[in-house]
Design a protein around this nucleic acid. Structure first.
Lengths: 137, 137
DNA sequence: GTAATTAATGATAAACAATCCCAATAGGGA
DNA sequence: TCCCTATTGGGATTGTTTATCATTAATTAC
């Protein structure tokens, strides 16, 4: 019985650690939806001893708290975004970068499904795939 | 420069091997979008010496040839479907199973994007997340 | 039918993302 | 300042997929 949702337990109280602040700052400073590896590199420049596990853990905690937004991309590392309104994404199949789609969110999209066979829908995501401007040359 | 699309090279001619036929048969016999591990188990019952690598390779080749459809699910193994018309999916966040969404495909969905900044869109996918009927109890 | 060509296979190693484990550390309330 | 426990570091581990390579076997040409 596979559990696919992230199993980060958020305790009743959270603490403000230097590492967590640096992770949040890194996500906010980076655009193009950084991966955990991107975040790790930036944070390590300021805090060389930080562990990869700490970066992963804090990205998970910050995502649960709603301070960053996790984009779960098929076939690639998760990506993180600092703005939190639901939106859709473009993924370049050449370089792997992820961009925000400039189109309105459709909260009622699931209404178009005629029969869910009892499936309870909580959210949806749309990913457009193609080739970004830089990779077309 | 990460390459995220599958790098299975399809030669000019392909051969009809027993293993490939068994892999195709397994995908066709299984519903709920089997993973490569599911396919491997079924095929191994008929052909005990098959290698996992062969299953992966053949799923890739069959997907490229259009004989099976690959569903690239975020945060989980790829899943395979034997019917090939574009459609959307429901993914249970508890058991990880993937179901087909009973809703029409929207080939012109990308037209709703006002500005792609030169991004060339080739396809899109929609994944609805929630809890399936079985996992609600 | 036989030989030649090369796609495909099996087994294993490796790449990659992400999580688990656990002893040590440190944040923050009392 | 003391205590509790959230958090950390670092390495081990899991899970999925691809790469490598010597060997096998499917197809083509003869």
């Amino acid at each position: 019985m596979e559990i696919t949702s992230k199993q980060i337990k958020v305790p009743t109280s959270t603490r403000n650690t230097v590492q967590r602040a640096l992770v949040l700052g890194a996500v906010q400073s980076l655009h193009h939806h950084p991966t955990s590896a991107d975040v790790y590199e930036v944070v390590r420049a300021q805090y060389p001893n930080i562990s990869r596990a700490t970066v992963y853990r804090n990205l998970g905690v910050l995502a649960k708290k709603g301070e960053v937004f996790r984009v779960e991309v098929p076939n690639g590392a998760d990506r993180y975004d600092f703005h939190n309104e639901p939106h859709y994404h473009l993924k370049c199949r050449v370089c792997g970068r992820v961009f925000d789609a400039d189109m309105p969110h459709m909260p009622n999209l699931a209404d178009a499904i005629t029969d869910t066979h009892g499936f309870h829908i909580e959210a949806h995501q749309i990913i457009f795939e193609g080739v970004c401007f830089d990779c077309q040359s």
